[in-house]
């Protein structure tokens, strides 16, 4: 049994079956890629795991705990964090505040402390700020901590989303097309970054990505889905040679 176990999951939207009896198993420390042609159901899988959508059938377990009936915020506190395909930063907050929000979950403040602004709150605030700045440094964003997140360049916004996700101290990190819109140089840096995150934070990473170069370069295990069903599973080398995958991508028959 792995750290993240998706078993026999199905999700329908009206008559459309977006995900069909899908199985997926991630082990601790995996760098796992989920790929597939447009509309294959990759993002739906993400939304099922993070609780944005509820599964119609099947189960999802994190570290042996059933999570598919929980709401997104509880799933986040159990240890799954994510980024979004279309960047969803808190647009009226600064870079630093974006990370701080995510950090709160691990450091609860009392409401009385918050209203009276006690010394206790002050020290906690400082701690949250320290943690957040540390993360920003790793992502090379510390110099712009007080700018509005909204004003960052695109690539930095993507990195900030990852930093924010990591601030929740997740066991499993879900990255939804982190390389989208990046140039080759930026993608290369991103690949290095993803690997170092996994090693430094000792977490498991699930990656959805369109950029084949990134997926093949960074993932150790890849699952290919099409029309919501698994069509292949293996190492990058195995996947590259799999005729079913080639057909799905090139659109056979």
């Amino acid at each position: 049994m792995g750290i993240l176990d998706v078993r026999n999951c199905t999700k329908r939207f009206g008559g459309l079956i977006a995900v069909k009896a899908l199985d997926m198993c991630l082990n601790q420390g995996d760098l796992y890629g989920l790929i597939g042609p447009n509309g294959a159901g990759k993002t739906t899988v993400f939304n099922l795991i993070t609780g944005v959508y509820k599964t119609d059938e099947g189960s999802i377990e994190l570290d042996g705990r059933t999570i598919h009936r929980s709401k997104p915020s509880s799933i986040a506190s159990l240890g799954i964090s994510r980024t979004f395909q279309n960047i969803r930063l808190f647009r009226s907050m600064t870079v630093l505040e974006n990370v701080k929000v995510a950090r709160h979950m691990r450091k609860k403040q009392g409401i009385v402390d918050a209203i009276v602004h006690t010394r206790h709150l002050k020290s906690e605030e400082d701690e949250i700020e320290r943690d957040a700045m540390q993360l920003l440094k790793i992502f090379n964003l510390d110099a712009r901590a007080d700018e509005l997140a909204f004003n960052l360049p695109y690539g930095s916004q993507r990195r900030l989303e990852i930093a924010r996700a990591l601030a929740t101290a997740p066991k499993v990190l879900l990255l939804d097309e982190p390389a989208a819109g990046m140039n080759p140089q930026e993608s290369l840096e991103l690949m290095r970054l993803i690997r170092s995150i996994r090693d430094e934070f000792h977490i498991t990473i699930l990656l959805v990505e369109h950029n084949m170069k990134v997926v093949m370069g960074v993932c150790e295990k890849i699952q290919v889905i099409d029309y919501g069903e698994t069509i292949a599973l293996g190492t990058p080398r195995e996947i590259q040679g799999n005729p079913k995958v080639i057909e799905a991508y090139l659109g056979g028959a």
């Binding site: 979004f84 808190f90 929000v101 709160h104």
Partner: peptide, 18 residues
């Protein structure tokens, strides 16, 4: 910050454990 995160993006706020 939790309040404002809800105003800015409710789905992202949930995903960050709010």
């Amino acid at each position: 910050r939790a309040f404002i995160s809800i105003r800015d993006d409710e789905i992202a706020a949930e995903a960050m454990g709010v």
